[in-house]
């Protein structure tokens, strides 16, 4: 990503590959792209017919996938084309999560039709569509860093570990009366965390998961992460921190050494703006150095937090309705 290319951005509205990609979306049927360091929105694309439930940038940073109602749409990141370039459909109900194989071989999705799906991305003739059905609407799907197992969390509180090659699956239910909202595995696959709608966070240590061996989960700890609905959990890229977002309008940062609370990221009432709208925090993403966290919340804003100081560094304001998902990538290919 050459610097001169970047410098042409802005005035003429043409988007070029910025080393940092930040996109947010939600209920206002638009996807907005931001200059993360300045807080300026440099591009808006329409996502007609549906809200956006989940956003994900392809590993090659060429496209962004937006999961909505009954379809997943891919938009070009490096052009100003306001229309989607690929439209995946044929699904009933909402698609709640979307993600990619690290080499871009396939895409995985999960949705309220209780199905997790694998979509072939490489070509049209070599189809490897796979489907995995569970008994309840799926809230979240996460790919194990070994790229061979999908972790699926559903509304009945079950977590399924689906081995893609053998179709072997295991399930565990930490609390049968709660719905699993989000699952995260850290980069070196030593921990897995899951949060539910009672604000509980469960942590397992992982072993195995190479070759033919399935991943073994060993309960490590459980913490009452929030008093209300927990919505998202994400390990930092360096695996030292875990962020949990919640309906209690805040984000908690936990140390992975002992799962103690490091800090609480919440807007204080004493900040300059009088009307601090504190709303549910739906999604979050870490910067590659684990120093910053971007959050999306129902007050139509996305915010950039410096985790160490626990303060807001930038605010991304422009959405007309709640922001419920975001995608962030600050790892330009070297």
């Amino acid at each position: 990503m050459s610097k001169d290319k970047r410098s042409t951005m802005g005035s003429n509205g043409v988007t070029n590959t910025d080393p940092v990609i930040l996109a947010t979306a939600g209920y206002d049927h638009t996807i907005r792209f931001w200059q993360a360091h300045s807080g300026i929105c440099h591009r808006t694309v329409q996502h007609p017919d549906s809200q956006v439930n989940s956003l994900e940038i392809t590993p090659d940073r060429q496209m962004i996938a937006a999961a909505g109602y009954q379809h997943i749409r891919m938009y070009d990141l490096n052009s100003n084309n306001p229309n989607p370039v690929v439209n995946y459909d044929g699904i009933s109900k909402n698609v709640t999560s979307v993600g990619f194989h690290e080499d871009g071989k396939w895409m995985y999705t999960g949705g309220e039709d209780s199905c997790a799906r694998i979509w072939d991305l490489r070509s049209r003739n070599l189809q490897c569509q796979r489907i995995f059905q569970v008994n309840a609407p799926i809230n979240c799907v996460t790919l194990h860093p070994n790229q061979g197992e999908l972790i699926v969390g559903d509304q009945t509180g079950a977590i399924h570990v689906w081995d893609l090659k053998t179709d072997h699956n295991e399930q565990l239910i930490p609390d049968p009366d709660a719905s699993i909202q989000s699952v995260s595995i850290d980069a070196d696959a030593s921990y897995m965390a899951a949060v539910n709608n009672k604000g509980m966070c469960y942590v397992w240590t992982l072993s195995g998961g190479t070759g033919e061996e399935h991943t073994q989960l060993l309960p490590k700890t459980k913490i009452q992460a929030h008093k209300r609905y927990a919505l998202k959990c994400k390990f930092s890229p360096d695996s030292t921190l875990l962020a949990t977002t919640s309906a209690d309008q805040s984000v908690n940062i936990w140390r992975t050494t002992d799962f103690s609370l490091k800090c609480n990221l919440a807007l204080k009432n004493s900040t300059l703006t009088e009307q601090v709208q504190k709303r549910w925090v739906w999604d979050c993403a870490w910067s590659s150095d684990s120093q910053y966290l971007v959050t999306a919340s129902s007050d139509n804003m996305a915010r950039l937090w410096a985790v160490e100081q626990g303060e807001v560094k930038r605010e991304y304001s422009g959405h007309q309705k709640a922001v419920i998902c975001l995608a962030f990538n600050d790892c330009p290919p070297t």
């Binding site: 229309n83 569509q129 860093p145 790229q147 061979g148 998961g209 190479t210």
Partner: peptide, 29 residues
């Protein structure tokens, strides 16, 4: 200009080789 990809209900049979190629587990150690 927008390619449309429809979900195929009928899963395509894949050979073990193909499966291995697509879903091989990465060694994280």
């Amino acid at each position: 200009r927008c390619r449309n990809v429809q979900w195929k209900e009928k899963p395509v049979d894949m050979s073990a080789e193909e499966m291995a190629g697509m879903f091989e587990k990465k060694d994280l150690s």
